[in-house]
Design a protein around this nucleic acid. Structure first.
Lengths: 290, 290
DNA sequence: GATTGATCATAATGATATATTATAAAGCCT
DNA sequence: AGGCTTTATAATATATCATTATGATCAATC
């Protein structure tokens, strides 16, 4: 790669049309500019015709100038991207489980409306995928229902989501047998949530894995549809249940001690978050705790 | 602009995934690479996560790598253009008077057919415009009917073109009065050529400026049309006259001593011609002298 | 056609930046 | 914990760069 000092001197020379003025413009001595240009000419051949005034570039000189301009454009682009990463403008990428995702979704939209320069890329995915995506740098922020062990991740609890057993209105879920008869409407994090809640309520019974499956969806918003139609029960966070429209067709099992999942925001620990990410994180925190 | 040594080290680091191997790849010591990356990090913040192996780039590190790649692309383009200017591929620009232009035109086309990579940009224009265009770097090569004075131009004679007085078949041009009655069909270099030839043949008479004009065209190939139709006489190089189809409708005044214009190739003197230009020039020379 | 003023080139020197060696620290594996 | 590999740091030698001083060239002017 060409010595940037020399190139800068050459550019100034081309722009100012004189060694002396180029030197002044750069805060160098004329001798320095003269040397720089000579070094370049040693390598590429004659660049500048000195006889004519204002100075004239040879064809090779023009190519070199063109190259120099390309470089400073690339430079400007880089600088711009740097500034972006330190401003509230630009993209924030976020990956969350469906349930809590639904909860914060309106808040994020409001945020975007307030700051037109801000773009939020939001993907819904089960816990394991959230974990991987953040580790692989595909998403900057992630929401998890458990605290990750990985040292490369920084996690902070930002909310609690009570788990609920939802069954069709009119059915009863007192005994383990009731659940077996109803059947389980599964979702990506379904078995994990079921294990957590059911082990508390039906201590002696086998795990959720033994429950017959009556359906599956990775769209949380669609999950209560089969429940409302009496096809089975499911277990999901309260936030997800509250988002369902026809509350009168479902029922929530009133448990004695609530089972609460903690929600964690995660991001890569090794480098500081871009300012706009930190800001979105803070906003989410506020939104979920109040 | 970013120090290119540091950037190069960073690029090697990103590619090799290790300080030691990056250093080996660059022929430096590991300490040097370590320093370089630290300098960059002093300026831009953390670039590389050292804990994980292979090494991982932070988001800023990725931006920087992207920038580094842009630079080396620009570099490659520049190198390519340099090589082009020293090869037979690429564009040769040529500006010539109409008459001699017609003469060499077929030769140039043949040249292009032989070398598909060669592109010839050829413009027809009167002497003064040729001069200016070459001086302004708009064309690399020019043909002139006189030797230019300008020191910025290098000129070499490559051919002679005899001037001819062409009049309609059946008319006679013995006396000055005959010319006045016929009238002059003018063209961009017409008056200059007329002065040259007529001052030889009609020494006592006033200059060509006093001849009545009967037409004008800057298309040399069209110039003899009005002459053939008896509208007047003209003065042009023999090459141009020979290209006319209906020779039986025109007549050439048989002069005792031929007036010969010398044709000069010109190009900027201050820098060496690109190789392909030199080659086209040599070809033209051959074509015009044989 | 010498003289003056302006511009650019060159050489020598001092200042700055860079690469290397040597060594310490950290991380990883058994 | 000990040995191995990898990275960081400090000190020193080297290379690069900018400056000053001076010489050369060219054009304008008297």
């Amino acid at each position: 790669m060409i010595n940037p000092h020399w190139l800068q001197s050459f550019r100034a020379l081309a722009e100012q049309g004189s060694f002396t003025r180029a030197a002044d413009a750069l805060g160098l001595t004329q001798a320095a500019v003269s040397q720089h240009v000579r070094f370049l000419e040693d390598q590429y051949g004659l660049l500048v015709v000195r006889k004519s005034r204002p100075l004239e570039l040879t064809p090779i000189g023009q190519e070199l100038l063109c190259y120099a301009l390309e470089l400073s454009e690339a430079d400007a682009r880089f600088q711009h991207r740097l500034n972006l990463s330190d401003s509230l403008e630009g993209e924030v990428s976020l990956i969350t489980p469906g349930s809590s995702g639904l909860l914060i979704y309106p808040a994020l939209l409001a945020l975007q409306q307030q700051h037109p320069g801000l773009v939020i890329r939001h993907r819904f995915a089960p816990d394991q995928e959230v974990l991987q995506a953040v580790l692989n740098n595909q998403y900057e922020l992630g929401l998890l229902t458990f605290a990750p062990q990985d040292k490369r991740l920084k996690a902070q609890a930002i909310a609690e989501e009570p788990l609920e057993l939802v069954h069709p209105r009119g059915t009863r879920v007192k005994e383990w047998q009731d659940l077996v008869e109803l059947g389980f409407i599964d979702h990506p994090d379904g078995r994990a949530m079921a294990d957590k809640l059911l082990s508390r309520h039906f201590p002696g019974q086998p795990g959720a894995a033994t429950l017959p499956s009556k359906g599956y969806s990775n769209q949380v918003s669609l999950l209560l549809e089969p429940v409302a139609r009496g096809l089975g029960f499911t277990i999901l966070p309260r936030y997800a249940r509250q988002a369902f429209l026809r509350q009168d067709e479902i029922a929530v099992c009133q448990c004695q001690r609530p089972v609460v999942d903690t929600l964690w925001v995660i991001h890569r620990a090794e480098w500081p978050l871009p300012r706009r990410c930190q800001w979105v994180l803070d906003t989410m925190k506020n939104c979920l705790t109040h």
